[in-house]
Each structure stands twice: as C-alpha cells, then as structure tokens.
Design a protein around this nucleic acid. Sequence first.
DNA 1: TGTCTATTGTATCAAATAGGTACAATGATA
DNA 2: TATCATTGTACCTATTTGATACAATAGACA
Lengths: 257, 257
Amino acid sequence: MQRSTDMNKFLSSEQDWLPSLSVDCVIFGFHENELKVLLLTFRHTDLLALPGGLVHRQEDVDDAAKRILAERTGLADIYLEQFHTFGQLGRGSDQFGRKIAKANGIDLPPDHWFTRRFVSVGYYALVDFSRVIPSPDVFSESIDWYDVRELPPLVLDHSLIVQKALDTLRLMLDHRLIGFNLLPEMFTMGELQRLYETILGKKLLRTNFQRKMLSLEILERLDKKWTGGAHKAPYLYRFDTKKGEEYLNNGDLVRKE
Amino acid sequence: MQRSTDMNKFLSSEQDWLPSLSVDCVIFGFHENELKVLLLTFRHTDLLALPGGLVHRQEDVDDAAKRILAERTGLADIYLEQFHTFGQLGRGSDQFGRKIAKANGIDLPPDHWFTRRFVSVGYYALVDFSRVIPSPDVFSESIDWYDVRELPPLVLDHSLIVQKALDTLRLMLDHRLIGFNLLPEMFTMGELQRLYETILGKKLLRTNFQRKMLSLEILERLDKKWTGGAHKAPYLYRFDTKKGEEYLNNGDLVRKE
DNA sequence: TGTCTATTGTATCAAATAGGTACAATGATA
DNA sequence: TATCATTGTACCTATTTGATACAATAGACA
C-alpha cells in the first residue's frame, strides 16, 4: 500500500533530519465568525494533532515551517511567526512516535530515532480561510478546521501550544497589525470588527472601533460598495501594506538614538 | 592542565546532550545608568560570546537555561524568559566549534559532533547587578559586563540575539512589569526612572513617570528615607509582587470567558 | 544660624485618547 | 412609499497623557 510505503520511507530517513528538533504550526483561519485552527487526525486513531514536521539538516528552521505550511495548506507567502519553543521533558514522554507507528502496523525497534525526545519550535500562521486547501500528511488520514473555543483534547502538549499561540496572537494583534492576514483582500468594517471581537473574546463598540481603525490611516477605502442585505451598503476596505509599515515604524518603537 | 582536561572531557560528552540544540542567555544588568550584558571571552582568542550551553538528554530546556544562568552568575531564582529560537543555517557556518577547540590546541576530527549545526534557544535574564558573581565556563578565560549601547562584535549571530532580546525587553517592560528585577529590593523613584529611560532609550517626564508608577498601585512606599545629597530625601520603594500579579491579572489580558 | 541650591512630591493646567449616545443616510423588502 | 436593519459620522463625556508650577526639604556654605 502506498501509504505504508511512504511511512516506512519516512521512518528510515533519520539521516535527512536535524535530530531532536521538530516544528509545530498553529494555523489560524477565520470563518463564520469563528477563529479556527487546522488539525490532523492520525490514521487508524482518533488522535488530533497540530500540523508539524522535522527540519532538514541543511534548512533554516523558518524555512521548514514555511515548507510544512505550504504542504498542509497549498499556500506560499503566508503570514508566519515563531512564538515559542517547547522543550519540556514530559511533552513526548509516552513514546508517542511508537504509538503512531503501531497504529499503522509498524513496530519500531527499541530506541528508534522517531521514538526519542523532540523539542518543538512553535509557529503561528494567519491565513485567508477561503484560499486554503487542506491536505493531510503521511501519518494522517484527514485534516480539518476546528473552532478554537471548543477544541477537543490534542496529543502531547499541543493544547498548550495552541493556547500560547492564541495568547501571542492577542498580544500582537494591534501591536503588529496582523489581523488583516485572516481576511480576504477586501472586507467591510463590520467583518474586521467581528474578527477582532472573536480573537479578543470581547465585544467592541462599533462606532469607536470604526473611528480607531480609520484614524490609523492604514486602510484604503474602495469606492465600490457591498451588495447584500436590506440596509445601507458598507464600504469595502483594503489593508494598505505600505502605510501599515509606515505606521509601525513611526509609532512607538524607538530603534536607534 | 586542568582546563584542557575539562575541555577534553566536555568534547567527548556527546552522549550527555540533546543533539543539535543549544541555549544562549542574554543576561541583563543595570549599573551606573547603563544597561549591561554579560559576555564571555574564549580562551586564547579575542572572541566574545553570550553565555550558553547544551541541554541534557533528560532535562527541560528551561531548566538548562536556569542551570547555565546559575553557573555564570552564582544566582538561583532569577527572572528568566525564553524569547526566540535561532535556527538560521548560516548561524554556525564557519565551523565555530572547531575554531574554539583549535585555539586551545585541540584538533577535532572531521564531523566531530561539536562542529555540527546547532539551533539555539534564546533566553533573557534580568538580574540585580550587585548580586552577580560572574564566573567563566570551560571555554572562556573571562566573563564581564558590557554596555549594551556599545557592544563589540560577537561570535556567530550573537549580536542579533542580543538585539532581539532587547526588543523583547522593551516590549515587555510595562506589559509584564519586569523592570524591577534589574534593581535591588529597595530603590528610589529616580532610580526606577533612570532604569526605564535607559531601557527605552528616551527621556521621560519625571512628574508624569512618578504619577504613572504610583497609580499602578504596585509599589510599597517605605517610610524610611534616603540619606545622600543636598536636597529633599526621596522615599524608598519596594515592588509588591502580590499587587503586581493582581494588576497583571485584572489588567487587559482576557483569559477565559 | 540663615540663605542657597538641587531635587522631590504633588497639584493643576491643557491636549489627546477612549467610552458612549444620537442621528441622518441608505439599500433592500414589503 | 413606508419600514427596517445597518452604516457613517458627529458630538458629548470621562479618562489618560503631556507639560508647567510650586511648595517642601536636606544638605552646602557663608
């Protein structure tokens, strides 16, 4: 069977990878007013995990994350940022690699490299939900979006990883103006507000939110209007990357003196 | 010679350590209105580097950082935080390990483990300058404080690591109320302000700084006064850890809903 | 002892920002 | 054409921040 061949090939590829190190990606998407993350289900189990992978011996860790992201989403040029490295002893204690292999009928020998300890570098990615085409990896039979607010239990310390990614996303939302990466190129102020409310987990006052966003002067108002419901048509906006960067540079960060 | 014995012992200790992974510590101190970092000088070279080390196979990465910190400063219970992991290919390209060994008369065989690629987890530490007793490691002949504003060139990507640590420190200074870790237990408002000004790299208005700090209600004003120059004696303050935590929890971080 | 000086603690302005309410405009629907 | 939900903006108020003023005080010095 092709799957099993791929898996065996991977399990005997120790020499390809940097030992001890892995990468895990928390891929955030926004859909129907829910903040979602992409999760894999390991084949022949009901175990859920973050998309992850290893680092080639001659590859930047950042590039490994990009590669993994591209493989799982079909997208290049995604907003991606490292947020924390998870190096606790307990995190892979129960021979996790062996369990996954076993579920696929493969008995790994004692001390097989894949059963050893891994320290994992966590990245979070912000993607336009509608552009993602999720595809599973060698170990997984499916990959799907899950609402961040009601995540089922995940393998290893992956729940902790998601939580830390979310904490970082909240902290950086305004500080780096990254929310727009979760929306399509054009969006209404209402859509942007619902995104903010979902991420921050609290309601915002519409009028003040609008004033604040416009005062930043980072949005390009498109003359076109929306065609939809029985009410006044909102403007469409586009995030102006150039103005956004200017704002961040002028802002509060003092670099050189 | 004892040194050479220690070094050889280390160089043949591959089995003790998690492969591919190292830890680097940016240890900040505050002295004479300068923000300083601890740097090592490698023996028989003029190469400067951050204190660092490897991770035992059965050791949390955080614990490894604590251990390294304790060895270099003589202090336990230091404010320590991971801030970034450095995984660029170029960062150890020029066989750095071989160069260091060579300077001490040791020729490492080709592909010796110590010459291979390492990905490094960066931590920054905030210490009370006056309590630190710096002590060099096996590879270094001295360890000293250097003003962050005028750092000499460092080995590998260590300059970048310091810069990123400093960026993180600035960003987190108010957000996590961590500045106090750089001061002795008791301090005047003036000392605190000079610390802030040094870290942020800009002047602050004295009266507003004082109002702001007092309004946080995280400082305990000690009835004692200072005895020094020809002017009104300032109060001494102590950071109230308990109130500090309350403030951070109530503040703006929304955890659970 | 009394005056001088540098610094500290606090009060008090004004300006900018954030929270909240009011209301006209408008695009479908009936 | 009237209705309705939603949008864009104006405006008022409360809070925070920026800037100035000034009294209090601990030594230095005459």
